[in-house]
Design a protein around this nucleic acid. Sequence first.
DNA 1: CGGCATCCGTTTTGATACTG
DNA 2: CAGTATCAAAACGGATGCCG
Lengths: 139, 139
Amino acid sequence: MVTIAQPGLAERLRAGQRQDERGNLFDADCPTRLILDRIGDKWTVLLVILLSEGPMRFTELRTHLGRVAPKVLTQSLRRMERDGLVTREVFAEVPPRVEYELTELGRDLLAPIDAVRLWAEEHAARIVANRERHDSGPA
Amino acid sequence: MVTIAQPGLAERLRAGQRQDERGNLFDADCPTRLILDRIGDKWTVLLVILLSEGPMRFTELRTHLGRVAPKVLTQSLRRMERDGLVTREVFAEVPPRVEYELTELGRDLLAPIDAVRLWAEEHAARIVANRERHDSGPA
DNA sequence: CGGCATCCGTTTTGATACTG
DNA sequence: CAGTATCAAAACGGATGCCG
């Protein structure tokens, strides 16, 4: 019942020895958790998907995302830049132009993100149905 | 440069016609976003991974997760139950025992989650390095 | 155009104490 | 044991206005 890429989780859990070379995912300080936190960010995932089409300007991103305060969008982009997921290029023009582009690392991230997105699109209807049944069920 | 399963995003973006049968991911009300939100939850992903090993009791989950207030853990589990990701079985014993178990839908979710986790484990070090370089770089 | 600064409301998470 | 109730903090997201 264990799926892919989970060698010995059960053993490590049972032994209380949940530590391995990659660190312990269940430790708040585990580096892997950093990425999970980033995925949890409201806009990052959407930004990666958008930028997978190619470089995009600030306002362009904003338009596609809908209701995002510029401050928030900047924060997300800056974090992604810090992590090395995107590059930020400023063009010395008037009016100014700033383009964001995925790095190779960022493009790499698209694969797992797409996996999640595909799953979500595939099962969204069922989950919505589950919710409705649950909410009206136990009267 | 477009990766898997993204047929015509570019076209849809350009046309401003970002709507298709599955709804528009960039619309806040898109069902797919519901799942993304759930993934963004601080504990849900970890819970799915833990429960992939088999049924587990409330306290058992709590122990593995570290610092979780019982209230918060309950909230996460209840949401997952509502979505049909886990089942909650109460045993009429003293002391009481409650076991949580992944549904088939929940086990299904493990695949995309593992994809993300694998990616994260693989690239965490690099991202941490990027951050450090970035933080000390622009002096 | 692409932000930054400021203020503020909501949501999320947590610590703690108590109960069936 | 498995929660619930309460209180408090904080992280997050958003609105707005100004500026290079």
